[in-house]
Amino acid sequence: MAEVGKTETIEKKKPVIAVGDGPAIPSKEDVGLFTAWRVSMTGALAIIAYLAISKPDPYLAILKFVPDGILVTFQVTIEAILLALLIGLFTGLGRISKNKIINGIASVYVEVIRGIPLLVQLFYIYFALGRVVNLPAMVSAVIAMSVCYGAYMGEIFRAGIESIPQGQMEAARSLGMSYPQAMIHVILPQAFKTILPPVGNEFVALLKDSSLVSILAVSDLLRRGREFAAQSFTYFETYTMVALVYLVITLFLSKLVSIMEERISVD
């Protein structure tokens, strides 16, 4: 008898926010994509191994030269995503705010940022604002990336919060909770599940976009590759290796996101 009365509110499937960016996150039901992931991953690793062994000069030399850059790429990505999450949370809350001024600020921020290419934003913060405040390249890079991704994150947070049934907020408020208390204890923990997959997707996209910061004298993976190529004139070999390393990293991260997503949907 206990099974009979399950309600629609609880049973309803959580809406999925589809953000098309980065390599698609493979889920087990999606058989085609799943095998595509395997083919790409094993293929990339096999090619890297084959090149490094059969032609150590320059391929192995390249592999030894770029790890510093990989660390920088991860550093930029992780710092930017953390800051972007924070900006995104407040932007998302601003976008659903009934206060016209707060809502206006958040909406204009999203519109403006989404309308300007990331590369232009990077140049703007580093070179144009460089005349007013002189920020180190790394700091400019992280700020520009997070301000840009914060706008997209804001939309994800907004959609995630709006996916929670109205009744949850009403129930929390009817118990005497303030709006912030209801958000923190009731709405956001539930929205988290819906938000996580698109956030993971954004993380992968951000990692790829972080290659743009190589222009600002930040020694990330791409820039390290450029440095190596400039010394050895092995442009083809170097960029082949750089591309393969990026591919392996993003494929690995996509997989990680999909595992995390599965774990969460089990609970």
Partner: peptide
């Protein structure tokens, strides 16, 4: 409430 609105998490 009609729809219970218990906190599922």
């Amino acid at each position: 409430f009609q729809s219970f609105n218990v906190f599922p998490h």
